[in-house]
Write a protein that binds this DNA or RNA. Sequence first.
DNA 1: TACTAAATAGAAAATATTTCTATTTAAGAG
DNA 2: CTCTTAAATAGAAATATTTTCTATTTAGTA
Lengths: 139, 139
Amino acid sequence: MEHYIDKLKHSGLKLTPRRQAIIALFIERKSHLTPEKVWEYLKKKFSRCGLPGVYRNLESLVECGILTRIQQFDSKKHYSLCSIGYGHDHHHFICRKCNKVEEVDFCNFKVISRFIEDNLHAKVEAHQFQIQGLCSKCK
Amino acid sequence: MEHYIDKLKHSGLKLTPRRQAIIALFIERKSHLTPEKVWEYLKKKFSRCGLPGVYRNLESLVECGILTRIQQFDSKKHYSLCSIGYGHDHHHFICRKCNKVEEVDFCNFKVISRFIEDNLHAKVEAHQFQIQGLCSKCK
DNA sequence: TACTAAATAGAAAATATTTCTATTTAAGAG
DNA sequence: CTCTTAAATAGAAATATTTTCTATTTAGTA
């Protein structure tokens, strides 16, 4: 938690109760969450709580490198904790049952990047790598 | 084009003018497109044309393996042609300038898959790999 | 404690997607 | 070629999702 608070302050963002609660929620759940899900949780903790604020907070937490956007194919936004940070390459394993997101600390992207630059003559700038399956508990 | 028509028929889907036009559009543009963009194009070709139909067609073209969903972070759905097919692993290079989508015929996923199964003790089922950058023309 | 920029709620608007029903059409059978 | 039927369609409407806006409140600092 300290780690995340440092990231917040380092980005010049204020440490508000709302943000602390959001970070705590993600730490507790370990899964990716939609703005709506986050809102459901926050409404229980804060009597006054707007969905627009949730959207804004999630985006600012992405920008300061605490959260990352997770791609699902359901027309909703999804976020999860991410130590790698905004603008960098992301590698996530996502459990299709419990939605737990685990970071994959391995990437042989250089090889693929080289392949692409050689074969497509393109300039590679970023990549996202998502792996789906069942986590150790769900399988 | 023949290739795509075969795929359609093979899936028991009808070859309608709408679908032919959608496939032709994707072949011509080479880029990923949102339902809205596809609709804009179809409206020029068909006097009567509904957006719900576009949504349905795009989804059925995904299911028969002609299109794939492309992940962008803008709250819209994105589709592109894809020879790999539904449920299989996808590897795309996407130009951030012209939105051209190129398939990457290279994958050392087995190594990463093995790494994940060994380290996270998870069962890997699918993966998507997206690479962003500038294509040969745009760079 | 006072100040200031940032964060907030809530209403409203804008955007995106899905559902529904009646009508039309593609494709196979005869 | 015509008939039949299941699939595809339009368009209206509903729903869902996200963003914008304004006034108010608050965190962090001096």
